[in-house]
Design a protein around this nucleic acid. Structure first.
Lengths: 193, 193
DNA sequence: CATTCAGGTTGATCTAGGTCAACCGGGATG
DNA sequence: CATCCCGGTTGACCTAGATCAACCTGAATG
């Protein structure tokens, strides 16, 4: 399935569009390809884009004082990535967004998105639903970090990200669930036997 | 300011309404008062309500296997509380929502909210913006937990919740930033000198 | 085909923060 | 006025997970 068909299907899950609305919506999107390890977004810049992944996979993360990487989100095909903090409050972000494999995207800028809302208000609904779902999942993530052990968090991760878990390195998974690669390796060893 | 005026002002920050829309919106809201320690929502139940706090303060939390309380959100006056996971995915929640002082609320049920969206679509916009902001803040919370020490998280907490920090017990703050009351007490002692 | 180099493993040691239990003080309650 | 209880403090000890450095492997690269 090509990128345009994919995003239309995604939107179509939540709202219905007539043919010309689809055309108009697609016309607002800027396609762009990224190579593995290429940045879609860097710390310190304002994030003005909603980015839809049409194929490949992307991570968003921050670097702490010691230069350690902490992965905030992993966005596979058929997902949006954004540095929400930067996008919403229009200030420099502290996240990097980086392709972890060659990745195809469709970019919706803040201005185009506002234009979209003006022309087709039902897109407010689409993004409302999208964000409410993402928010719900994110709240779970907080409670998981607060109340579960690393091993338990890993359990959940495996279930939720089963489809992409194989294509991620241990380092990435470790970072996502919030432990060091060394500890994660030991954890796996302990589980195997 | 009374509850109705407060919620109209809140909504008015994001969208504009004519007089009859305001009336209609208010007609969908069910006022309800809660005493300190009363539950607005219990673990195991489906959360079907968006709840707006008109005065007082509320916390949402979960109990882990050991019965320890972990506070997910603290909602003061002029905020909404919901168990998003339960509300969005329509399944039993694992959160408690409890008044930490006597609290006045306006309740918007899921059905009424859908009705509201049908009658006044710009409310999609209101909730879209609301949720995008909440989501952004919540993502910060995740990165904070992943990359900061307890003391640093407390710093941030003080800044962000300055206005209500005094009316919370140390236990509540400790739980919110993700440490035990004992450790939190020691942390304060260390800071004082 | 030699060399990097990134991802992973492992050992030794360290520490942030947890656990458990005793204790304190003050406001509510009988 | 005695008692309870809740929030907080403190001491002694414990542990999940971090840190640091050495080492291994295999795939990419010159």
């Amino acid at each position: 399935m090509d990128g345009q068909a994919l995003i239309l299907r995604n939107v179509g899950n939540y709202i219905s569009m007539v043919e010309e609305e689809k055309k108009y919506f697609l016309s607002l999107l800027q396609p762009r390809e990224y190579y593995r390890k290429e940045y879609l977004q860097r710390e310190g810049n304002n994030c003005n884009n909603f980015i839809f992944i049409t194929n490949g996979c992307v991570k968003s993360y921050l670097l702490d004082q010691k230069g350690e990487e902490h992965i905030l989100t992993i966005a596979p095909t058929d997902w949006w990535v954004v540095d929400y903090m930067s996008f919403v409050f229009e200030k420099p972000g502290n996240l990097f967004i980086e392709a972890i494999e060659n990745t195809g995207t469709l970019i919706l800028t803040k201005e185009k998105r506002e234009e979209l809302f003006r022309k087709i208000p039902s897109f407010e609904r689409y993004f409302r639903i999208l964000t409410e779902r993402a928010f719900a999942v994110n709240q779970q993530r907080v409670t998981d970090i607060l109340s579960l052990t690393a091993a338990e968090r890993f359990e959940k991760f495996q279930q939720r990200y089963a489809h992409i878990a194989n294509s991620l390195t241990q380092q990435q998974i470790a970072s996502f669930i919030g432990v060091t690669p060394a500890f994660f390796s030991r954890m796996l060893k302990a589980k195997r036997k």
